[in-house]
Design a protein around this nucleic acid. Structure first.
Lengths: 205, 205
DNA sequence: AAAATGTTTGACATTATTGTTTAACTATTT
DNA sequence: AAATAGTTAAACAATAATGTCAAACATTTT
C-alpha cells in the first residue's frame, strides 16, 4: 500500500516553500529539513536524493494546472472558448502561487527535458493538441498565425507574475492588494484583447 | 588608470555564458575558470568573490538595454511612440541574447533589491518615469489603466523568450530559424496590438 | 510479548566550493 | 639590469553540502 503519509506532505510543503524562494540550487537539504522541522537524515530517508525531492515538488506544482488544461484541450471546445478558459485557469493558479512562473521557467531553461516529460504524463499530448488546432476551421480561416495568439495569451497571463516584484513596487507602490486586484482584472481583459485581436486582424489585413 | 583589461573581458564573457546557462547558484567559480581557460585563483584575483563577479555580469547585462530605455523615457516622446520604441529595443536585445529574461527574472525574484538599484544607476529614475506618464494628456483621457498597457507590452515582448525552449519545441518543431522569424514578426505585431487595444477600448467602453 | 516493520537520529565519509596566502613568474619602468 | 608593479599558479584552510550507515526508538502485526 503506497500511500502518501503525513510526514511526506509536511516535507513537500516545506520543500516547495524553500525551492520557490531560493531556487533548486540555492536551496540546501538542510534548509528544507529546518523548514519541515525534521532532521536532514529523515529527509533523505523519505526522498533519498535532492533531485528526487525536487522532481516531486516540480511535478506537484505542474499538477495544479496542467491536468485542467489537458481537460480543456480534450473537451474539444472552440479555439475562442479554449483561450478564454486557459486564461482563467492560469491566472487563478498564479494568484494562489505567484512564484510558480519563475520556478518553472528557471527549471525549463536549465533542464529543458524534464517539463515536457511531466506535462505529457499529466495528460497533455502535444501532438494531439497541435493536430486539434490544425483542424479547427475557425483557425484555418484566420489571417493571423494561431501560434502568435497562444503566445500572446500565455505572455499576458504569466509575465506579470514572473516580474511580480518589479511590477508590484514600480507600478503599484508595493500595495499587494492593488496588485492582486489588477491581476484579477486581467482575467476579463486578456480574453477581451484576444477577441479584439482576432477581429481587427480580420478587418484590416 | 582603471581600465578594463583583455583578461577581464575574457572572464566576463565566460562568466556570462556560464551564469546564463546554470544560474547564479548552479555555476561554480571553477566552471567559469574552465570556460575562461584560466585557473580559479586568477578568477579570484580579478573579481575577488563570486558575488562581485555575478554583480558585474548582471550589471553588464542590464547595460545592454536599460540605458536605451532610459533615453526613450527622457526624450519625452508620446506614450504611443514610447511603447513602440520600447518593443523594438527589447525584442532586438533578446534576439541577440535569448537567455536574458530567465537570468534577470530569476535574480529579480531571489534578490528583489539588486536590480532596481542598478537600473537607477543606469539612468532610469522610476519616479520621474511615473510622473511623466501621469502628466501625459493622451494617457489621462484613456479609459484603460496605462499600467496594464505597459504590462501588456512587456509581457508580449519578453515572455516568448523566457519560455523559449517550450515554444521552440512545441510550436516551431525545434526550428530555430522559424522561431527567430516569429520573434521578428512580433516587432511589428506587438505595437499594432497595443494600438488596436487603445482604439477599441476607446470605442467600446 | 515477540517479531516485524517503519521511523528517527547521530556519526561518518566524501566531495565540492570558496576564499586566502605565498611563492614564482612576467612585463614594465627607472 | 635592478626595481617595481602586475599576473599566475600551487598549496592551504575552512566550510558547506550530499549521501550512507548502523544503532536506537516507535509502531504495528502476529
Amino acid at each position: 500500500m503506497e500511500s502518501i503519509t503525513e510526514a511526506e506532505i509536511k516535507i513537500m510543503e516545506a520543500a516547495e516553500k524553500v525551492f520557490y524562494q531560493k531556487g533548486k540550487n540555492g536551496a540546501s537539504m538542510q534548509d528544507i529539513a529546518d523548514e519541515a522541522q525534521i532532521t536532514r537524515t529523515s529527509l533523505n530517508y523519505y526522498f533519498r536524493t535532492k533531485d528526487k525531492l525536487f522532481e516531486a515538488v516540480f511535478r506537484n506544482t505542474l499538477s495544479r494546472f496542467v491536468p485542467e488544461i489537458a481537460r480543456l484541450i480534450h473537451n474539444g471546445r472552440s479555439f475562442r472558448d479554449y483561450l478564454t478558459q486557459l486564461v482563467h485557469v492560469i491566472i487563478d493558479t498564479m494568484i494562489e502561487n505567484p512564484q510558480i512562473p519563475v520556478f518553472v521557467l528557471q527549471e525549463l531553461s536549465s533542464n529543458p527535458d524534464r517539463m515536457p516529460q511531466i506535462v505529457k504524463e499529466l495528460g497533455i499530448d502535444s501532438d494531439f493538441a497541435i493536430d486539434t488546432f490544425k483542424n479547427d476551421e475557425f483557425l484555418r480561416q484566420l489571417p493571423v498565425d494561431p501560434r502568435h495568439l497562444i503566445m500572446n495569451a500565455l505572455s499576458l497571463c504569466i509575465f506579470p507574475f514572473a516580474a511580480r516584484s518589479m511590477i508590484l513596487n514600480l507600478m503599484y507602490d508595493g500595495n499587494e492588494d492593488a496588485y492582486i486586484r489588477a491581476m484579477k482584472e486581467r482575467k476579463q481583459m486578456v480574453p477581451f484583447m484576444i477577441e479584439r485581436m482576432i477581429n481587427r486582424m480580420n478587418d484590416e489585413t
